[in-house]
Design a binder for these strands. Sequence first.
DNA 1: GTCTATATCCAGATAGAC
DNA 2: GTCTATCTGGATATAGAC
Lengths: 215, 215
Amino acid sequence: MKQEDTKQKILDKSLELFSTQGYDSVSVGEIAKAVGIKAPSLYNHFPGKQAIFDAIVESTVAQYEVDTGKIDIHVQNAKQDIPVFTEITEDALFEKVRQIFEYSLHNESISRFRRMMTIEQFRSPELAALYTRRYVERILDYHAGIFRALIASGEIRSEDPDALAMMYVAPVLTLIGVCDRQPERESECLEKLQKHVRLFFRMVHDGSRQRGEKQ
Amino acid sequence: MKQEDTKQKILDKSLELFSTQGYDSVSVGEIAKAVGIKAPSLYNHFPGKQAIFDAIVESTVAQYEVDTGKIDIHVQNAKQDIPVFTEITEDALFEKVRQIFEYSLHNESISRFRRMMTIEQFRSPELAALYTRRYVERILDYHAGIFRALIASGEIRSEDPDALAMMYVAPVLTLIGVCDRQPERESECLEKLQKHVRLFFRMVHDGSRQRGEKQ
DNA sequence: GTCTATATCCAGATAGAC
DNA sequence: GTCTATCTGGATATAGAC
């Protein structure tokens, strides 16, 4: 096996172990065994256990843009996604959210890294900041940008795109958290997700139709 | 020092350490040092390290009802809190949420236990279920009950109290998560909280006033 | 109940042969 | 690059004196 292949395999197996047990509970012996080598051989690829963890963080952060590009989301510049949201139907919006939701849960590296970060978020201020940036702020900023444009164009009604983004995004984050802990509840969470998207859609689009139904 | 005092001190100091470093990173020697005894003396109070963790979980779960009662929240039966929400003003609602928010962050045992659970949530299916029950479901159920009553009484407009509860609660949970990781961002999160409550309040109460302002 | 001393084990990491 | 052998330190836990 090539040198770089082994190095990558160490990263993969380490992430797999770290994401379920946490950094401290995993021994270098365990990692080595999962990779198929003996513990001392690990030190030909990394200077120590902490270096493996650091490399995982660094490389996953780097690959973030690549992966998110695959599902047609570009957090960097939300503007190019605004047309997707304009004039979208309720069902199409849910389908879009469902796609991102399931991708986040089932993509192994994405999901494992998120769970590892959840466990290790208090390990250092840097990790804490990374967690908030990646799993809260960027998602909020992205959606706030879209909502800001939709408000300006009169597509939806509201005065606060940031608060609107929080209201739209936070339930999704909460449901992802539930599924990370209890994957067996995914279908239940998908239903809640659909109800959420439905309610949100109806609230931001001119509510007169819905109120008309009630009265 | 009395026997029970020492036992309680072990629980307190252990929680303090577990909540920042996680179970595996804390040694019984560290705990003993924090308590002011030597490691072997711990074994007069608990059969082992795991037993300390278990006792923390058990006793904190038991004290949950007591603590929440102090801030006038009774998750068990939401009905008695419905009058508090009826005809409430926007400012009063925020003040109420702010109070709970800050209590959750600054009450030491509450906050530490939550952070410990965040770190250890993947340790077992039982802990995962406890986390979801305590930090998601109970809060959602409580608010869904209130919203259901408010919808029935015509106080607010909506058709889905569960989705409404998710929309109302999830941003609060997200912001608590941010503050757990980065306590220095509390004031920033309080502002986001206020904006959220404000937007939510205006959305659920008949929106004609707000739409009138915009046109 | 607390201590010292100790047993046992396993962790991360290194040396050096192949 | 991989291995075996080994070092060193620290972990949980126990024995038994005070």
